[in-house]
Design a protein around this nucleic acid. Structure first.
Lengths: 215, 215
DNA sequence: CCGTGTGAAGCTGTTCACAGCT
DNA sequence: AGCTGTGAACAGCTTCACACGG
């Protein structure tokens, strides 16, 4: 029966991983609506997805469904939270306390449901030593390596200027951080084992601009 | 010769459009480095891309290269800027002047190279009427429809809470805005002709968390 | 001879369709 | 009967490899 996933046999595509998050969000909404079970077909219609894809995605990790019935909402939500690793809190640090860094520090999604921002780092002496509302400290960038030694940091967010992004990456990697969310407009060099996600807002704007032009 | 693109014959994939931005950025760097021409092979090695893909992407829009030589850096940069529509300035408005909205207003990529933020909108009376450094005004959300009538807005950025994201979208669409960059964690409903790009930071974090768990 | 432009091959991810379980 | 789980078909994107032009 519960033929659990061989934990790393097939690599699980980027897109599929992202969909797991979307499913989780959908399930939370269904749960709030008081629904106990849902079929892949109803789920797909509700959120404009493809039912076969939902089943395939879920089946990669085990047999969560009940044939003839569908999926148990609460149980599947728990399974997905576990798969996504948000059942235990992840420590996040923000490198760069400029506009973006401070905004992210206050952003809801960064401080709920499995993630906790534990510190910001910046080089600007005017910012160092202050603390944002919520008591979040802004520390000196030079202190980051020492901080990483005494505090387990799961995810490092890069919100520094493009010029210092690589240097920041190197410090994160040296400190044992294995996942990086990069907002700087550069392709970072990091060892294969490090997970890097790039969020490049300028590219997003330019892509929209492209489609506007070619409409 | 310049067999120009049939302007909308093949749809141009999402991924390809994004790469055009990346190529443009690379070309700007090469130009700063004083390079006059570059072959697809050298370009690929410099930025860790695939040379065949570069040629295919570019060939979709015309014959920009010179056989035996490569591409003229300045000329190709101009072509790409034109294709991406950033040779003429695009007006951007930010809906939501919270943490994220204000950060984006100050973000470099949103105020250079073809984009100009012309206004922020918010419902909070404490924010309305103020203006950020740079003189950018924060206007009342209710005034947005009137604003859209008198000012051409190319791109609307949604940085409001999830609950009001759809309402904001509807107002943008009604006001003739054809491209939307959405930071709210919901899938927006909009007519087919509207271009919507979603940037969901929570999903990015959860995806990283997933890979951490399954490493 | 070098590098572009491009048909063909290869690959990855998505959708279909149905066997089998409940 | 209803719905999951899944092999097989399909579609789209990426990479290869080479003919052709400079």
């Amino acid at each position: 029966m519960s033929r659990r996933s061989p934990a790393g046999s097939e690599p699980v595509s980027e897109a599929a991983a992202r969909r797991l998050s979307i499913y989780l969000r959908g399930l939370q909404q269904l749960e709030a609506d008081g629904l106990r079970t849902i079929s892949s077909h109803d789920f797909a219609r509700r959120f404009h997805l493809n039912s076969a894809q939902i089943r395939k995605d879920l089946a990669m990790f085990g047999e969560f469904g009940i044939r003839g019935v569908g999926y148990d909402v609460a149980s599947l939500r728990n399974h997905l939270a576990g798969l996504l690793g948000i059942d235990e809190e992840k420590n996040v640090i923000l490198c760069g306390a400029g506009n973006l860094g401070q905004a992210l520090a206050g952003y809801g999604g960064f401080n709920s449901a499995g993630f906790r921002v534990v510190a910001l780092f910046d080089v600007d002496p005017a910012k160092i030593g202050t603390s944002l509302r919520g008591g979040l400290p802004v520390l000196e960038s030079a202190a980051m390596p020492a901080f990483l030694v005494k505090t387990r940091v799961d995810i490092g967010v890069i919100a520094v200027p493009a010029e210092s992004a690589q240097k920041t990456t190197d410090a994160l990697v040296a400190g044992g951080v294995r996942a990086i969310l990069n907002f700087a407009p550069v392709r970072l060099r990091a060892p294969e084992r490090i997970f890097v996600k790039n969020v490049d807002l300028k590219i997003q704007l330019e892509t929209l601009s492209f489609y506007l032009r070619n409409s």
